[in-house]
Nucleic acid binder design. Structure first.
Length: 562
RNA sequence: AGCCUCGUAGUGUAAUGGUAGCACGACAGAUUCUGAUUCUGUUUGUCAAGGUUCGAAUCCUUGCGAGGCUACCA
């Protein structure tokens, strides 16, 4: 679909990764570029993954190479087919296509096993009986060297037998591991004889019960890259310390290609938590309704909220790629969102918190079909008919009794434009016994039909939206706000859940929508004029529910808050 | 405290020894049948101190600050 927008919005300046790629192409090190997006199927994709997806698939498009989707499924205890399915759906929704390049690390279990045996034969790996606590103690610390395991000197023969026995299920989980024999005094802790294989008597979502030993990330990732002829293996900064190990495997194994790992900073966003672990906690503690709660920064949540894939791709293009651990202002994401929505959303009228308006000089039984533009800046959106009659609803906020001079809306004695309808003047307020305003009695000027200025040259400062009381349809509208009250929930005192915004969801049940919205399909997006962008919920499809994607920028509201 | 990485307007990101730019935000104004959009303008920056150089954000030294690393997770 709109994949072109990704490449057409690339900044002129290349990031450091693309510069490396340019050099590798120029020097002849590579003639084609191959990247990969390697999620573990143990959770849902979020906006941070989108950054990586746009980088990897984006580079493949720009350099006419390819990008593999590879599931890093080496830990059957956490992984599940459900996640595989959701990840594929989300990548596709974002607008990327892995074509025939769908892979699983588990496809390489046989090869990895053979390579582990190879290392043993070379005297570069051994079976260790140390338990978890002892292994930790032997590893040393950040400042002290570790010491060799007493099992480090086993013969090749013995290691071969033991490893085969591990594979055959002769030992319990945790009884033994296979370790690389590198250097227990290495300043980089990852090089102190890292574990390669552990015993896990678990069912794997793809290999079933074939295996009871599984390779871990370090022993799997680089070799999988090499097997797929990945040229540039892009990952986040926390793997920086793993690069020497990544290279050690590439150097010490007869792999078919030499991929290069390059790290970049992961995405942080203000007022948001992004880590999978924390998102899982919100789901499990039922602070949100699920992974696809519209307040979640997951792709499924954002999709449900009404985000467009284009806006997310634009955003990812704008934030750049660096090694600096930055926190991006969520306003930049919202800017990308509004930019796309403004261009592509048809306008409609909806009243979320209605007050009734009676036009006293309008005939009781008359109905007019007012013609309204669907987009003020784009005639190709066409027009629609909106019914107008004697009784209408307007937004409660659009009326004020003792209104200041700068209030350009309804107040007794003031005249405003009802969008695409008429000039309306408020004559009288009706209140109930509690003093609550329940009705406005108004008059209209027939000379202003269509909302046009009258022949006498009279002008009006404000234009407000409305719906016909007789024709309006009822709907529920969910108003979402940021999930957290502080810019960086992760770095505040105490648990991040202490900073959840209690007002992140308001459910409005008495909303009145113009009748054209009857035909809105789940997932359809609109601008409710003067309010914001809204999207019909894709989950509660038996009723009419709209999610507010993002409000319009509001310089009046901003004034008020001062 | 050992190792690795990183410090450019409020935020994010360019400038690859030669005029510190862009975007977002904020602020002001113009236009407007959405207090939206659009348009115009304003504002603010090279972590610090030395050094090399005709010239340093860029190279060197030292200091300061930030992040990551001690799973049989990825």
């Amino acid at each position: 679909m709109n994949q072109e927008t990704t490449s057409t919005t690339e900044p002129n300046n290349k990031d450091f990764i693309r510069e490396i790629i340019d050099q590798d192409l120029e020097s002849g090190k590579h003639s084609a570029i191959v990247t990969r997006f390697p999620p573990e199927p143990n959770g849902y994709l979020h906006i941070g993954h989108a950054k990586s997806i746009c980088l990897n698939f984006g580079i493949a498009e720009e350099y006419k190479g390819r990008c593999h989707l590879r599931f890093d499924d080496t830990n059957p205890a956490k992984e599940d087919q459900e996640y595989v399915d959701s990840i594929k759906e989300d990548v596709r929704w974002l607008g990327f296509d892995w074509k025939e390049n769908l892979h699983f690390s588990s496809d390489y279990f046989d090869q990895l096993y053979d390579w582990a045996v190879h290392l043993i034969r070379e005297g570069k790996a051994y079976v260790d009986d140390l338990n978890v606590e002892d292994m930790r103690a032997y590893r040393g610390s950040l400042t002290e060297a570790g010491k060799d395991s007493p099992f480090r000197t086993r013969s090749v023969e013995e290691n071969l037998n033991l490893f085969a026995a591990m594979k055959n299920g002769d030992f319990d989980e945790g009884a033994k591991v296979l370790r690389a024999k590198i250097d227990m005094a290495h300043p980089n802790l990852n090089m102190r004889d890292p574990v390669l294989y552990r015993i896990l008597k678990k069912h794997h979502h793809r290999t079933g019960n074939t295996w009871c030993i599984y390779p871990n990330y370090d022993f799997t990732h680089g070799e999988s890259d090499a097997l797929e002829h990945i040229t540039h293996s892009l990952c986040t900064l926390e793997f920086e310390n793993h690069r020497p190990l990544y290279e050690w495997f590439i150097d010490n194994l007869p792999v078919p290609s030499q991929p290069r790992q390059i790290e970049f900073a992961r995405l942080n966003l203000t007022y948001t938590v992004i880590s999978k672990r924390k998102l899982l906690q919100l789901v499990e503690d039922q602070q949100v309704s699920g992974w696809d709660d519209p307040r979640m920064p997951t792709l499924s949540g954002m999709r449900r909220r009404g985000y467009t894939p284009e806006s997310i791709r634009h955003f990812c293009g704008r934030i750049g790629i660096t090694k600096f651990n930055a926190t991006t202002d969520v306003a930049l994401l919202e800017h990308s969102l509004r930019e796309d929505l403004n261009l592509n959303s048809p306008r409609v009228m909806a009243v979320l918190d209605p007050i009734k308006v009676v036009i006293t000089n309008y005939p009781e039984d008359q109905v007019e079909e007012m013609e309204a533009a669907n987009h003020p800046g784009d005639e190709s959106f066409g027009t629609r008919k909106v019914p107008f009659c004697r009784e209408l609803y307007i937004e409660r906020d659009d009326f004020m009794e003792d209104a200041p001079r700068k209030f350009f809306r309804m107040s007794v004695g003031r005249e405003v434009r009802f969008r695409a309808a008429y000039f309306i003047k408020c004559e009288e307020v009706v209140k109930d016994e509690h003093g609550e305003v329940i009705e406005l009695r108004c008059t209209y000027d027939p000379e202003t039909r269509g909302g046009n200025n009258p022949p006498d040259g009279r002008k009006v400062k404000g234009t407000i939206h409305w719906v016909s009381a007789r024709h309006a349809i009822d709907a529920e509208v969910r108003i979402y706000d940021r999930l957290f009250t502080v810019e960086n929930p992760d770095s505040e005192e105490g648990d991040f859940t202490n900073y959840l915004n209690p007002d992140s969801l308001k459910i409005l049940t008495k909303c009145k929508l113009e009748p054209s919205l009857t035909t809105a399909a789940p997932g359809d997006r609109f601008q409710f004029e003067r309010l914001g962008y809204f999207c019909r919920d894709n989950k509660n499809t038996d009723q009419l529910v709209f999610n507010r994607t993002v409000p319009l920028r509001d310089s009046w509201g901003k004034q008020q808050r001062k």
